[in-house]
Design a protein around this nucleic acid. Structure first.
Lengths: 256, 256
DNA sequence: GATCACCGTACCGGTCAGCGGGACGCTGGG
DNA sequence: CCCAGCGTCCCGCTGACCGGTACGGTGATC
């Protein structure tokens, strides 16, 4: 389940429900739309949204409400993502410069991967991912490598839940997926071939925690079928991920 | 004023007060520390922080509280910053690849510049800026160019307020600053020479709104005195900023 | 230009979520 | 041993929050 109900009997619960009603590609939502999405009474949304505006978490435009810059600031202070991002940037940078293909950094959250960074040039392949966005673990290279280097129980959790089909190539058979995960664990790389979007392929390698058997995050390179062969970039991606791993384990940035 | 009091007689106000108690380089704050910073009663902080945890805006660790990954996700959905970032990345990317110096993207908020993106390699100069962080407008190249392309009233507002001295080179005389702003407006570039941090220099150019007389954002290149001469990069920075300007004005991403 | 659907805004009295002073147990340092 | 500082919990008071309802504006449809 994406995220549980969030207590609607409390102001705070209503507030975050409203905030979370915005998806990655909503620019601005009208009051009515917020009412529709949240299921809250109109008067309530009106009031709470107003409070959110005075508290600078929302902006008011003549078209409706929109997540504010203050929220962006706050989000960038989230310790784990922030320090991961700062450590990772130089590596992602290098990787991009050597490949000139789209480079991703992501972490796992439940059954999804959350993208922490995405860098690409003017001619980048049109990927469905966005920084701060989510994708199901089972249909992306990043997701697979993260899952391969997760606790067996969460791995099993995902394998035993229904696997949404995103494209004709999406792997929906748990058995096949499990074999790929084992291979990924063995090789330290995972692949994706048009499983999240038609026309795209991807390689990913894990950023490992101290012990070396759990992934903190993962790095990937994505490109269009045709000019791009995932196998050709295995070494580079792996090198970047390993470099970051060893740098990260020399710092504190983990735990729960 | 950075941000006004935020109504403390409301749950929401207390909640954001607690969230904003975290600065860019706080990893984790104890309950007691939060009490100290917010001035709220201990019992209240304890309860509200608890609520924030159940609503996934804070994480609980054995050392204290910390801004959660959910908050990061939310922040990345802030429309203005997000779309700006997406449009800008390829340009920042190019700029970095041609200079191999630290590249920034920033917007103005009140008397501060807020950094939206920062990219640099392994050998980057050690800058005080961080993505999501703030710096005073008057002591950075980005800040100066943003101010030069702002409404005259806000420009005057800043000029007539006390200018904090950050380094021995920080410009604290309003007259001198004003002359630099005029020059910046004329040339479409601003410079900074060790005014925010000793040993660093910087060039910045504006990302202009449709009309061409107001800046939406600004791009800069920063490097260490010695190997780095700001003048040498004027053309590149300006080109990147102009490219982004024309791209941005072909989209909707402005207003208040 | 009348009707209607849908929007954003405003009102207002009942009630329960939120409040915070204070007490408690734990820990570590002097 | 004591004390300072921490996190947690209790509990009765009260005003912040609630949301049904009503109102004015705006655009499409006939």
């Amino acid at each position: 389940m994406p995220h549980e109900p969030a207590d609607l009997d409390t102001v705070l619960g209503k507030a975050v429900t409203i905030l979370r009603a915005f998806t990655v590609d909503d620019q601005v939502l009208s009051l009515a739309e917020l009412v529709r999405r949240t299921g809250l009474p109109k008067a309530t949304v009106h009031r709470v949204a107003g409070d959110l505006v005075t508290n600078r978490l929302l902006d008011r435009t003549n078209l409706g409400y929109r997540l504010s810059g203050g929220l962006f600031e706050l989000g960038m202070r989230a310790s784990v993502e922030r320090s991961l991002l700062e450590l990772a940037m130089p590596f992602l940078q290098d990787l991009y410069e050597r490949t000139h293909e789209t480079v991703h950094l992501g972490v796992r959250e439940g059954h999804d991967v959350v993208y922490v960074a995405k860098i690409g040039g003017h001619r980048q392949a049109k990927t469905p991912s966005r920084p701060g966005g989510r994708m199901p673990v089972h249909c992306t290279a990043i997701g697979k490598i993260l899952l391969a280097f997760s606790d067996p129980e969460v791995q099993q959790e995902v394998l035993s839940s229904p696997l949404e089909r995103r494209t004709p190539h999406t792997i929906v058979a748990a058995g096949l997926l499990e074999r790929q995960l084992n291979a990924a664990l063995e090789n330290g790389v995972a692949f994706e071939r048009e499983e999240s979007a038609v026309g795209l392929q991807c390689v990913a390698a894990p950023v490992l925690a101290e012990g070396g058997d759990r992934a903190l995050a993962a790095i990937s390179v994505t490109g269009p079928v045709g000019r791009f062969r995932p196998e050709a970039h295995v070494t580079l991606v792996r090198a970047a991920a390993q470099g970051l791993s060893s740098l990260a384990s020399r710092r504190r940035s983990l735990s729960s």
